[in-house]
């Protein structure tokens, strides 16, 4: 892959969504110890759609999305699914408490 500089926040979230590509997402996932599968990408697509429509994300919404249930969400992105999936999606850190 060509060497590109990606700007991220102190917590590792992309600062500019236009810099995101599936390769960047996969690399961030690898940093989190996650190997991306089709199931993971379906969730990332959903999260990016919500972000583009300016819908704030919550665990409850993801659980009701029809894409994945909450148990599977925790299993796919262990140790903080909403944060990790947001990071991989290239969107800012979620601000929700639920």
């Amino acid at each position: 892959m060509a060497e590109t500089a990606i700007r991220v926040s102190e917590e590792g979230y992309l600062e500019d969504f236009t810099q995101w590509s599936p390769e960047v997402g996969a690399e961030i996932a690898a940093e989190e110890g996650i190997t991306m599968t089709d199931e993971h990408w379906k969730v990332i697509d959903y999260i990016q759609d919500q972000y583009k429509n300016e819908v704030p994300l919550t665990i409850r919404k993801v659980g009701k999305s029809g894409v994945i249930d909450i148990k599977e969400f925790y299993a796919l992105f262990p140790g903080g699914p909403l944060k990790k999936a947001s990071r991989i999606s290239g969107i800012p850190k979620p601000v929700s408490c639920i």
């Binding site: 919550t58 665990i59 409850r60 919404k61 659980g63 249930d69 909450i70 925790y74 929700s96 639920i98």
Partner: peptide, 18 residues
């Protein structure tokens, strides 16, 4: 309005979340 679930649904979420 804040997307906080009712008690019964919240209990299900808690259980699913481990």
């Amino acid at each position: 309005k804040l997307d906080i679930p009712p008690v019964d649904e919240f209990l299900e979420i808690l259980s699913a979340s481990g």
